[in-house]
Amino acid sequence: MGLRIIVTVKQVPDTHNVSGDAMKDDGTVNRAVLPTIFNPEDLNALEEALKIKEIAGGTVTCISMGPPNAVEVLKECLYRGADDVILVSDRRFAGADTLATSYALKCAIEKVGEYDLILCGRQAIDGDTAQVGPQIAEKLDINQLTCISKVVAVEDRSITVKRSVEDGYEIVKSRFPALLTITATANEPRPANAKQVMTYKNIGKEMCSSSYDESYIASDACAILNHVKEWNVEAIAADPEQCGLSGSPTKVKKIQSVVLAACESRQVANSDAGVADLIHELIEENIIG
């Protein structure tokens, strides 16, 4: 019998491409105009799951909590070979901090049922907290191996991995079930498979009925509705009090824009003489030797 693998994935704003028009006048980011992407290390987690499945057999189930739009990343999972995808979506999940997020994902994982491995990206680029994975593991009362730079071996009922730590690395082994967080160095994620893309696109055309409320899910998202399970608070039997804003102990007290204290700044001419003068000055002041 093969392995039952669950992968958690997140849709994030593309923080690498924050362009000028994404900034509001008050200096905050206008998330609405930012392009969204598949959180990079979640792609590494998916890749690792697919590789393990290729070796050991089994199924890969991807779960994402997010707004209806997050169906986009689940589609990407299907294109790469995921067997099953689940969107955990409900207005009552909105405003969740990492604790409330991990609670909702834990409930969804319990609803999926039996599993051997849960793979998460180490962290999401919009917060870099790396908290959700370990928080899920605790709630499920299972072992965790974080910051994995390589899967060394998948044995019958256990997995051996390389963890990168500050002063080197360690090779560690855990029995199933376990939750793993995967880093970008672990693998090179595969691109979407053109055949899968065609399959799901074609199915989509047949499935898109006009009665469907398109205002809730973007029109091309309904292309794969028959493959995307959508679960709300009731579906995962979650306590609404522990979800979203009400389940989040951390609150934002205030947001301040930082006014840069203008330091005594000097413009240096971009010429041979200007640069040479600057270097000379720094040597004089013993800043450089």
Binding site: L99, P134, K139, V165
Partner: peptide
């Protein structure tokens, strides 16, 4: 906020259901 701290702190926060702010 080391590999060790980032591994164990969220687990503890999850068990105690308390807030945790990273970095």
């Amino acid at each position: 906020a080391t590999t060790m701290g980032r591994d164990v702190a969220p687990r503890v926060a999850s068990a105690l259901k308390c807030g945790l702010t990273a970095d």
